[in-house]
Each structure stands twice: as structure tokens, then as C-alpha cells.
Design a protein around this nucleic acid. Structure first.
Length: 613
RNA sequence: GCCAGGAUAGCUCAGGGGUAGAGCAGCUCACUCGUAAUGAGCAGGUCGUGCGUUCAAAUCGCAUUCCUGGCUCCA
């Protein structure tokens, strides 16, 4: 059931499987192209284009069964049950016929019909019949007809096919899709297309798609030699190459330092544990199919951990805890393993082994509110450190089936809301959208090309403290239940790395770039000077690469540029004489003959401030 | 998991029933050159894996693994 659409969902710390909305809003700077601005005009136009496509498909396959064909973000689709599977060439034929239909200037004619009439009209269309029969009695049933094609549809539509610009749409791809998204129902063929008001907008959207492809983290990961995956060694398991590991190390170093600075302690816990843990936590009941299968050893069943929380709870329960000890803020870069269906694996975005930037906060009821506010502030600090300024919060509240006292839920929800408001974040409330064990806040960021990704999640848990019988001794000498909050800021390191890689298109800021400075001697005669500079920079912990190959200077620059190394230092006779360098930044203007000390000062500032360039 | 497409040298890709091809990368040699590709040469795959059809398979068929695009967006 999961799909690529869910790639922007984070890895939840606890029991739920990731479910999330996919928001794709290209051209964040260009209102014309965003869905928010999508006036009915574009919606109508796209939906009408879907109808035109259905007509074209029926011309080719008169026996085709049609399902549904809505407008979606940037375009539309239509699902068909066809006698054979479509080939890419079919799309061209369909497109051609669609253009003919548009040029024919056909009216879209609406007709209100009775249920019986509708059943008669669509008697050969089983999917439509199913829809008709499920319509509420009160609902007006209408059909829209253009040319030879009539569809069950509530509209609205454009008036005439001439309102559709036959040069402003394009069919993109064919895909399988279950009827009504249900894997037990028949698999239909879905044709996706994109449609716009004018050819210029279409062009812009196609360019955007190209940009998405160019930034694909799988492509960049290969080009920049950052990581790899190996089917023969296990799908969905990531191998970090030296350069990728360097970036990851820098990110993790930053993460750890900031946690210590912000009142957290770090933990390390095992990767496997006996079934008792997962029976107690409830994972084996609710989540078994998401776990790697058991390993049997010394007559006990062990599981690779899909979550870190039970381990942190073990540490909590290791001794008596007093209200004086709380809150505990325990963080761990914990690598977990989950069985993700083979069809859902995708580069670094969806994998089977990944590292959560996890933490659990155990606190008293009194502390809950300030802890939540603090966690949210800390999340925002991290996201902003990486240059994500546009942040949207989503608050999910108590679902019908839930554990825990409703009053506790209410209080938790209130404190979550207060935290969001104190940070003045935009937010949406998903009523009843919380997990069964507690309400949560999710944070979504928007990347450089306008796509939304969910990264942080802050979740209450009324379940595990109960199941594990966690307690603390309160001021009155009585044992009470602590509050437990799960939170991940970046989500998982792997996925965050993928998102960030796409966000910056491979051009990491200097502080975490795998190579920070490239040295480019103009000719062999200046290799010595390059070595001298290299030694000095290395002594300052700068990651430097001296290109002493016998390539020509132009070639060296090209290589460094393609590797997206932030700074290139060109070194020749003039530089060597005056102990200077010529600076060619990966972006921006070059500056010649800068005193070396000036450069290092500039560089160190960039690095320590984590400048994003 | 399901539907469709794909898997050919490290990378990007061409070819297609008669025993494999390009560019880049790599290696060697020459060149020592001021801001995005110096030139020449060499080496490198049995065409994802298995089984089958055939005189003959990378090319056809079946199976399998992995990859890619999709699989709630309610007429």
C-alpha cells in the first residue's frame, strides 16, 4: 500500500506505519504554479483534459472500462481497465487523438439524471455502476458529455474543448493502480498527464521535472561517490563511502554537540533484543510484519530492533527514579531495522536499515508543557541550521481507538498546541489523526525547489510507560507514571541525508562538505607551493585536496567544480611569490591574489558559523 | 506484495539469433599549460542469475533477483 508518494513521511519512532500526505508544490516563488493558487480554472481544465483523454482511449479501445479520472496536483490521471497493457507508444497515439478532440471544439454538456437513468447509461461500465450505487440518495447525479464521450461526473468542467490548449498538456506515464487503492481489488492502468493553461507553463513544469531528476539523490550519490546500495548484499541497506561518511560524520557531530549543549544525555543501546522486549512493548502484536524475522539463539528468540524506545526504557527502569531526577532527555543515533516491502524501497529515502536521531523524554506531568515547548524550539533550531526556513506544523489528535485516559490526551494536545503557538508556526490540525498511543506534532519543511518533506516528529506515548510499568516516586512518596515523549528531529539520518542532498543539489555548505578546499597548481612547478598550502590547511583541520595530477589547470578546475567543492585555490607563480592564493569559489566571483591568512580567516568563519553560502 | 518497464565495461548508453560497441572514468607515454575537458596508446564486459528452444542466444521463451515508475487523492 505504501507508495513513492509517502517518501516524505518520516520514520516514526513508535508503532505506526508511515502515512503521510504528499505535497508537491513546485515553483514556490512562482505563485502561478502552486496548487494553493490553483484557482478553479486549472482544476477544471485538468479534469476536463482527463475526460478528453478518456474519450481518446475509448476511441482506441471501445471495450475499455473506465474508472475515475480526477484532477491532481499539476495534472490529472484516469484509470482504465483495458484488454491489453499500454506501451509508451500508445501515449503518443492517445495524445494525438486528444489534440484532435480539443481542436474539434466540442461542448461539455451537463445533464442531471435520476439514479435509474444513470444505471442505464453506464450499464456496461461496472466501475461506474459501483460508484453510482454508492452515491448518497440525496446527491444530485449528473453526467458530462463531450463529443462521443459521456462520463459520470459532478463537474465542473470548461465549457468547450477549445478552452483546453492542445499545446499545453502532456501524458507522462502509465502505472498500475488498484481500483480504489485496495490491493484486493483489480489492478487498473492509470495514465498520468500534466495540463496547463498555456504552453509556457507546461514548459516550465517540464523544466521543473527535469530539475527534480537532476537533483535525484540516487544520481548525485553516485556522481559524487557518497553512498551505494548492493542487491547482492541485501536491498535497502546503505553503504556509506568515504565522502558520504564524511558528511554524515559532520552532521552527527553537530547533532551530538547540540544535544549535550541543550540538556540531553546520549545513549548507546544494543541492535538486537529478546522477544520479551517486543512482547512487552506491543510491537510483536501490532508491528510484527514490519520487523525482521527472529533469530534463535540459546533457546531464546531475538529480534533486530525496529525502534529504540524499549531499550531506553530498560535504562530508565534500571533504578528507582525520583521526581527530583526528572526530566530525563535521552538521545541516541539508533540504527533500527524494519522490513519494508520490496516495492517501496527507494534510494536513501526508504530503506530497511536506518539510523533514527531519536530521543525520549521522561518527565513529570508538571514538566510536560515546558518540555514540549523546548523540544519544538530545539527542532526548529536544527531545521533552520540546515537552511530550512519554511516550516509547517501538523497536530494530530486522539483517534477513536486509543489507549490512555482521554483527560491526559486533552492535556497533551493542549500543550502541543501551546508550543506551536508560542513558536508562531503555521499549523493544521488533523482531528483523530494521532496514533493510538498519543497525540503528536509533525514538522514539514520545504526544500529549495518547493517540495515538502516531513522531518521532525514529536509524539506523546501513553502506552509504553504503562506496558513497561514505569514509575517515579513523587513528592508525596507515591509511585507515579512518568510522561514519555518520543521525538526525532531529522527523522532518520539516511533519509535526511537524501533530502538534504536533493535540497542543496549536492553542493553541501562548507562546514559539512566532504572536501572543503581544492588546490589547483597551475603547473607542476607549483606543486611544492600547493603541498605547503595543503600542510597548513590540514593543520587547521580543513579537508583539503591538492590536485597534483598532470592534468591541465582547466581540467582540474572542471573536476573540482563537478565535485562541487566549495573553494578552489588556484596556485601559480604570482601566488607563490606573494604567499597568496587565487580564490575560485564553486559559485560566485573569483578573487585573485588574496593573502593566504585572509583566506583562512574567511574560511574558518564560514565553517564555524555553519554558513550556508 | 501487486501492475508495467528495465538489467550490456566502474559510469552513461548503443546494438540485437551466428561467438560484443561508443563516450567518460582507469592505466601508460608525451605535453607543464593561468580559471569548466591537451594529445596518443593500452587495458577493460560473455551482455543480472538459472533453466529451456536452436546447429548457434547477449539477442527468443519460462523462472528468479534487483532497479525504475506507480498502487486513498473518493463520479
Amino acid at each position: 500500500m505504501a507508495s513513492k508518494k509517502y517518501l516524505n513521511a518520516p520514520f516514526y519512532p513508535y508503532l505506526t506505519l508511515p502515512i503521510s500526505l504528499y505535497i508537491l508544490e513546485p515553483f514556490s516563488n512562482d505563485k502561478e504554479h502552486t496548487m494553493t493558487d490553483t484557482n478553479d480554472k486549472l482544476l477544471k481544465l485538468r479534469h476536463s483534459t482527463a475526460h478528453v483523454m478518456a474519450e481518446a482511449v475509448l476511441q482506441i479501445f471501445p471495450e475499455a472500462k473506465i474508472a475515475i479520472g480526477p484532477a491532481i496536483e499539476n495534472g490529472f490521471y484516469y484509470d482504465f481497465d483495458l484488454p491489453r497493457s499500454l506501451k509508451p507508444e500508445d501515449l503518443e497515439e492517445i495524445e494525438k487523438r486528444m489534440q484532435e478532440i480539443m481542436k474539434a471544439k466540442l461542448d461539455f454538456v451537463k445533464k442531471v439524471v435520476t439514479k435509474d437513468q444513470a444505471l442505464e447509461i453506464f450499464k456496461n461500465q461496472p466501475y461506474k455502476l459501483e460508484l453510482i450505487n454508492e452515491l448518497p440518495e440525496t446527491e444530485e447525479i449528473s453526467t458530462y458529455t463531450q463529443g462521443e464521450f459521456t462520463d459520470l461526473c459532478r463537474g465542473p468542467h470548461v465549457e468547450n474543448t477549445r478552452d483546453l490548449n492542445f499545446k499545453a498538456f502532456k501524458l507522462l506515464n502509465v502505472a498500475g493502480a488498484y481500483w480504489r487503492g485496495d490491493e484486493k481489488r483489480p489492478m487498473l492502468q492509470r495514465i498520468y498527464g500534466t495540463a496547463w493553461d498555456n504552453p509556457k507553463d507546461l514548459r516550465a513544469h517540464l523544466d521543473w521535472l527535469k530539475e527534480v531528476e537532476k537533483r535525484d539523490h540516487r544520481r548525485l550519490g553516485k556522481e559524487l561517490d557518497l553512498f551505494s546500495l548492493h542487491e547482492e548484499a541485501g536491498p535497502g541497506l546503505v553503504y556509506w563511502h568515504p565522502k558520504g561518511a564524511r558528511v554524515r560524520h559532520e552532521i552527527e557531530k553537530f547533532w551530538k554537540n547540540e544535544h549535550y549543549k541543550n540538556g540531553y544525555e546520549l545513549l548507546y543501546t544494543p541492535h538486537v533484543g529478546k522477544s520479551w522486549l517486543w512482547e512487552t512493548s506491543g510491537h510483536l502484536d501490532f508491528y510484527a510484519e514490519g520487523m525482521y524475522p527472529e533469530m534463535i539463539m540459546d533457546k531464546a528468540n531475538y529480534y533486530a530492533k525496529p525502534m529504540n524506545c524499549p531499550f531506553h526504557i530498560m535504562i530508565y527502569k534500571n533504578s528507582m527514579r525520583s521526581y527530583r531526577d526528572l526530566p530525563f532527555r535521552w538521545a541516541e543515533l539508533g540504527t533500527v531495522y524494519r522490513y519494508e516491502k520490496s516495492g517501496t524501497l527507494h534510494g536513501l529515502m526508504r530503506v530497511r536499515g536506518f539510523t533514527q536521531d531519536d530521543a525520549h523524554i521522561f518527565c513529570t506531568p508538571d514538566q510536560m508543557e515546558s518540555e514540549i515547548i523546548e523540544v519544538l524550539r530545539f527542532s526548529l533550531f536544527f531545521l533552520k541550521s540546515f537552511g530550512f526556513e519554511k516550516i509547517q506544523a501538523y497536530l494530530s489528535t486522539r483517534p477513536e481507538k486509543a489507549v490512555g485516559d482521554p483527560a491526559l490526551w486533552k492535556a497533551a494536545e493542549e500543550s502541543l498546541k501551546k508550543a506551536i503557538e508560542s513558536e508562531k508556526l503555521e499549523y493544521d490540525i488533523d482531528e483523530g489523526g494521532g496514533a493510538f498511543y498519543g497525540p503528536k506534532i509533525d514538522l514539514k519543511i520545504k526544500d529549495a525547489i518547493g517540495r515538502s518533506w516531513q522531518l521532525s516528529t514529536i509524539q506523546f506515548d501513553f502506552n509504553e510507560p504503562e506496558r513497561f510499568g514505569m514509575t517515579f516516586v513523587d513528592t508525596d512518596g507515591k509511585e507515579k507514571r512518568p510522561y514519555m515523549i518520543h521525538r526525532a528531529l531529522l527523522g532518520s539520518i539516511e533519509r535526511f541525508f537524501g533530502v538534504y542532498l536533493e535540497h542543496c543539489a549536492g553542493a553541501f555548505p562548507v562546514w559539512c562538505a566532504p572536501v572543503q578546499v581544492a588546490l589547483i597548481p597551475v603547473a607542476e612547478a607549483f606543486n611544492d607551493y600547493a603541498r605547503e598550502i595543503e600542510t597548513k590547511l590540514k593543520a587547521m583541520d580543513v579537508r583539503v585536496w591538492a590536485d597534483l595530477s598532470d592534468d591541465r589547470m582547466n581540467q582540474k578546475i572542471r573536476k573540482a567544480q563537478n565535485e562541487k567543492i566549495p573553494y578552489m585555490l588556484v596556485l601559480g607563480e604570482k601566488e607563490a611569490e606573494s604567499k597568496a592564493i587565487s580564490l575560485r569559489p564553486r559559485q560566485g566571483e573569483q578573487k585573485n591574489l588574496i593573502p593566504f591568512d585572509d583566506f583562512t580567516q574567511f574560511l574558518m568563519e564560514k565553517i564555524t558559523n555553519k554558513d550556508l553560502l
